[in-house]
Amino acid sequence: MHPSARAVAVKELEIEDLPHDMQDSLLASVGENIMRGVAIAALEKLSPEDQELFGTIAEGGDERKTLEFLSSKIPDFNAFVADETKKVIAEVKAMAE
């Protein structure tokens, strides 16, 4: 049986032994950082003009357009998000040491 997404996330953050309420708090905080971290990494791949365009599209609230735009600018955007996600998680764990 494959583990649940939560179990994988909790294991990835190495917080299996914490109570659920603490896990929730950390998942929420780290989730926000992942979002911001991936966004920053994506923005770094874009030209200043594209950065501004990305902001405009994203703030328009059309997720599909946002994704289409990023996918057209960043090769293999799925893998890119996955890699950056792992980097953020690794960083926060290192900072907690």
């Binding site: 179990a7 990835e12 966004a39």
Partner: peptide
């Protein structure tokens, strides 16, 4: 969202970009 992103990297990378776009929205 945190679960999906943090756990999704190992479960399935195919959907993470969509999750990210949703979170940005």
């Amino acid at each position: 969202l945190g679960i999906t992103l943090a756990g999704g990297a190992l479960l399935s990378t195919g959907a993470l970009s969509a999750v990210f776009a949703t979170g940005i929205g």
